[in-house]
Design a protein around this nucleic acid. Structure first.
Lengths: 221, 221
DNA sequence: CAAAAAGTGGGTTGTCCAATCCAGTTCTTG
DNA sequence: CAAGAACTGGATTGGACAACCCACTTTTTG
């Protein structure tokens, strides 16, 4: 509740217009920081891109760090949104493969630039701004939660062996994705991303092949 | 050859003393940039940490970007060095597990701070400095090459099924490692790193279990 | 509908830091 | 061992940018 109650940081409530302006600033900052990194993005760039002027940025944000934190929260929503329905269908191997294809295709369209909006941003500020690091970690946990939901459904359904730990597998899958995105960004090539996701999905598929079905057939006991 | 022929960038050769000074600057820069990131590390910090003064940094490096590139090359060597013998024994499952344990333990000792010296640095400058991005990509390829050597040995020995692609598997393993390191850095917890590496090694181990041995027994044909 | 709060636009300031300069010292080699 | 190149130390400069201020306008609310 009140998660998206837009405020200026000191708890003041904003009018509708103010919320829109604030949102425009965050969106502009998110895009610029994604393209050029935090350090290379000046508040003046953001001000111009958002179409607001002068002290506006400081009206809504304590300082640049506060804006960075807002951008991380914004990207957390944006990244999950962008994956749309795919995240609701990670409970079958074909669903997982479709998700993989979507991500790879998305990176290809971007020319492998920017990496992960959350991971890359988080890494840049991790050792400088503890609050931003925590915000990025929280964003990744939300993402991981969606993957975990799918794998846990498979597990509960008996599509994964009883001994498997869906939570650990979800964590590994997101890590593979993050590493694949990072390497794709550095090499400007989707191959590392494809290799990483394929290896994880092959692993999941081979686990699924050895599972004793619970739904049809008799439960393993 | 002449890979480590230390120069000041414009091709001038350095005396022994000059090489040492240059090396001290790079090492100091590497440490500071690992701890605080490139943007937060000033040339003055580096100068002081290296125990040299004034124009010294500019004597050896064209500008800050050139120093960053030298740091990436330095870290490429340092990271491979730090893994020592482990990289020579990635051709058996126990060897891979020992490597995994070493990396996890190393991160634990660091309190999960800093992430990967190559990956984190590369990500920070990827969209700003193409040469640095390429240097980081090259460093990762060297690393990946060492992993690939191990897996190719296993493959040639018949410990991996004929259908497997050791190169792709090596790429996936390094990606999982990179993503694990990134997430460990953000969460200040080795669990994501452990999950990522364990998943990849479990995958390799299960492939090994289904392989038709070539050395003993008759070759698959 | 008036008073107060919220929002706007632009100008200013002070700091930090990359990059340059130069005068002086220490190595190197013919 | 002398001449010149390599190296050192500190001081300076110029630009960029985060952060602040204030006069003015628009929106909200009692």
């Amino acid at each position: 509740m009140a998660v998206n109650q837009a405020e200026t940081g000191d708890g003041r409530r904003l009018t509708r217009r103010g919320q829109e302006t604030r949102q425009r600033i965050v969106a502009a900052a998110a895009e610029l920081m994604f393209e050029n990194g935090v350090a290379e993005t000046t508040l003046e760039d953001i001000r111009a891109a958002a179409g607001v002027s002068g002290s506006q940025v400081y009206h809504y944000f304590e300082d640049k760090q506060a804006l960075v934190r807002a951008v991380i929260d914004y990207q957390a929503d944006a990244v999950l949104d962008a994956q749309g329905d795919h995240l609701d269908h990670l409970d079958t191997v074909p669903g997982l493969r479709a998700w993989r294809d979507f991500i790879v295709e998305h990176q290809r369209r971007l020319g492998c630039r920017g990496g992960c909006p959350i991971g890359a941003l988080g890494a840049e500020v991790a050792e400088t701004d503890a609050a931003a690091r925590v915000a990025a970690a929280r964003a990744l946990r939300r993402w991981e939660g969606r993957i975990r939901d799918g794998l846990q459904t498979m597990h509960a359904r008996g599509d994964l062996p009883a001994g498997t730990d869906p939570e650990k597998l979800a964590l590994a899958t997101l890590a593979a994705l993050q590493g694949g995105l990072l390497m794709a960004q550095l090499e400007r090539d989707t191959r590392p991303l494809e290799a990483a996701l394929d290896a994880m999905l092959d692993r999941i598929q081979s686990l699924a092949a050895t599972a004793t079905p619970l739904v049809r057939g008799h439960p393993a006991r």
